[in-house]
């Protein structure tokens, strides 16, 4: 078989699946070596994916189109998965806690599986239509997906927080391996602020671009509106900290609801609603 970028990228699905399994094993058996293996496999998948993206970029030049691989649903899914792993690796490096990997790598694996194997997603390299021929494409897609990936990781923290429960009574071997609720709350907050910053920049770069292409920075197109809805959900999560009794569990739920809203902004709008962003759907 010809070694194409999409073949290599489809293989990373399984590398990330392996990483998820290893991190789960690490969570269960807590053997330091297993944890290190998880990191090694994740980094290997990340490097492989980076190579795949670079190859795809080059292929696009060879085909005479010459654009960064960030222009359709397939490419955005690959990029989402790539940034999710990047954000996770930074978190792992900073917290030194590898159990988090069991809750972050699945998002990257699922995104790659969907990109590579769903009949709805075409992996062909397509030329850029006039509306997409803008430098703002790169700025817009990169910032949005930095936000989305951070929210995926924050959603992982939210799930961990809820699994950990209120810490009373049912203390168990598995739960004890998770970071403390205080740490999880802090991590969740930090990742949400980080994602919120990039979502905001993503919305703004989109507005600047729309203004340049169509003369309107905001037209209440379904994708725009859903990104605003997502923004409201995370704004709620950030302000909830200042209300007594709202920290912790409620924010954990909000980080999950927020990510559902991200997913809807990302896919739901493409498949269920119509609008200006239709080129993101094939």
């Amino acid at each position: 078989m010809h070694l194409s970028s999409s073949y290599i990228l489809s293989l990373t699905t399984f590398v990330y699946l392996g990483a998820t399994a290893i991190y789960l094993l690490y969570w269960i058996f807590r053997l330091e070596k297993v944890g290190i293996l998880g990191t090694v496999v994740t980094v290997a998948g990340f490097l492989m994916q980076t190579a795949g993206i670079a190859m795809r970029w080059r292929e696009s030049y060879l085909m005479g189109y010459g654009h960064a691989p960030l222009s359709n649903l397939y490419e955005s899914l690959v990029f989402f998965s790539w940034v999710t792993i990047l954000v996770y690796l930074v978190v792992e490096f900073k917290t030194k806690n590898r159990v988090i990997g069991a809750f972050s790598t699945p998002f990257a694996c699922l995104a790659m599986a969907y990109a590579s194997f769903s009949p709805n997603v075409q992996d062909a390299i397509q030329p850029l239509i006039p509306a997409l021929q803008s430098n703002w494409l790169l700025a817009h897609v990169i910032t949005c997906f930095l936000g989305y990936a951070s929210f995926a990781v924050a959603c992982g923290f939210g799930i961990m927080y809820l699994i950990r429960g209120d810490g009373r009574g049912s203390s168990s071997y598995l739960l004890d391996a998770l970071p403390s609720r205080r740490t999880l709350d802090e991590l969740m907050h930090q990742t949400i602020i980080f994602g919120f910053l990039w979502l905001t920049v993503g919305i703004i770069t989109g507005a600047v671009w729309a203004n340049q292409a169509w003369g309107t920075y905001w037209s209440w197109d379904p994708k725009e509106t859903w990104s605003l809805i997502t923004w409201f959900v995370y704004a709620t999560a950030l302000h909830a900290r200042f209300v007594r009794g709202w920290a912790g569990k409620k924010i954990a739920y909000l980080s999950i609801i927020g990510f559902v809203s991200v997913i809807f902004t990302y896919f739901g709008v493409n498949f269920l609603l119509s609008g200006l962003h239709s080129y993101g759907s094939s």
Partner: peptide, 9 residues
């Protein structure tokens, strides 16, 4: 503020 965020969303 939180109420408005939720209602607006």
């Amino acid at each position: 503020a939180i109420f408005l965020f939720i209602i607006l969303a």
